[in-house]
Amino acid sequence: MAVFLSKCLLDFFVAFGVVFGGTMLAGISAVITLEPPVYKMMNVSEQIKIWAMVAAIGGTIDPIRAIETHFHDGHISPAIQQIMYIVCAFIGAHMGTTLIQWICKGGSSG
C-alpha cells in the first residue's frame, strides 16, 4: 500500500511540476520576446496538460497495455492501480493548470 501511495504522489507531483514549470518558463519566454505573458501562459498551460500526464505515467503506452493485460487475465486489482496512477497524474496536471489560471487572473474568481 505504501508503494502504491508513493507512486500516486510521484505521478501527481511530476504532472503538476511539468505543467507549472513549463508554463512559467513559457511566461519568461513571452517576456523576452515582448509578447503578453498572461495569454501565452494560459495557452501553454492548457496545451501541456496531456504531455504532463504522459510524462508522469511513464511516457509510453505500457501503462495502458498493463491495464488491458491484467483486465483480460482477470486480475482487476493491478488494472485499477494503473487507472489510479493515471487519475493522480490527471489531477496533478489539472491542478497545475488551475493554479496558473488563478495566477494569471490575479487571484480573482471570475
Rank of each mutant, 00 (worst) to 15 (best):
V44P: 05
H70F: 14
K40P: 01
F13Y: 08
G58P: 01
W102H: 12
E35C: 03
H75K: 07
A30E: 04
E46D: 11
I91N: 08
I67K: 00
T33S: 14
F90L: 12
I57W: 02
A52L: 06
E68S: 05
I32N: 10
L34H: 13
I80D: 03
T60V: 09
G27Y: 11
F16P: 00
F71P: 02
P36S: 09
M1G: 12
Q101H: 14
F16K: 01
V87D: 01
F71E: 10
A79Y: 01
G22D: 03
L5F: 15
V54E: 00
Y39S: 14
E46M: 15
T98I: 08
F20D: 02
Q82W: 04
M41N: 06
I64D: 01
Q82R: 14
I91R: 02
A30V: 03
G27I: 10
G74D: 07
I61W: 10
V19M: 05
A2V: 07
C104D: 05
F12Y: 14
F20Q: 02
H70G: 03
A89W: 05
T23Y: 08
V54T: 11
I91M: 07
V19F: 05
A89N: 02
V18I: 15
F16S: 05
L10Q: 14
F4Q: 06
Q82L: 08
S108M: 01
S6R: 11
L99T: 12
T97V: 04
N43L: 13
H72E: 07
G59R: 03
G92Y: 02
S29A: 14
Q47G: 12
T23W: 09
A30T: 08
H72S: 15
G110M: 07
S45P: 12
C88R: 06
L9M: 10
M95Y: 07
G17R: 02
K49A: 08
G17C: 03
T33M: 09
T69Y: 03
L5A: 10
L99N: 03
A89T: 04
F12C: 09
A52D: 06
M41S: 04
M24A: 07
T60K: 05
Y39R: 12
A2T: 08
A55Y: 06
L9G: 15
V44W: 13
A55I: 15
H94K: 09
Y39P: 00
V38W: 08
L9R: 06
G96I: 08
I76G: 00
D73A: 09
M53I: 15
I57V: 15
I83S: 10
M42L: 15
S6Y: 02
A56N: 10
D62Q: 10
T33Y: 07
A2R: 09
T60G: 15
S77N: 08
F90C: 14
I64F: 12
F71Q: 01
N43K: 15
A30H: 13
I100Y: 04
Q82V: 09
F12I: 05
A66M: 06
V18K: 03
M53D: 02
D62I: 09
S29C: 12
W51S: 15
G59E: 13
M84R: 01
G17M: 04
C104N: 07
S108Y: 10
G59W: 00
W102G: 09
A2H: 04
I61E: 03
L34M: 11
H75C: 00
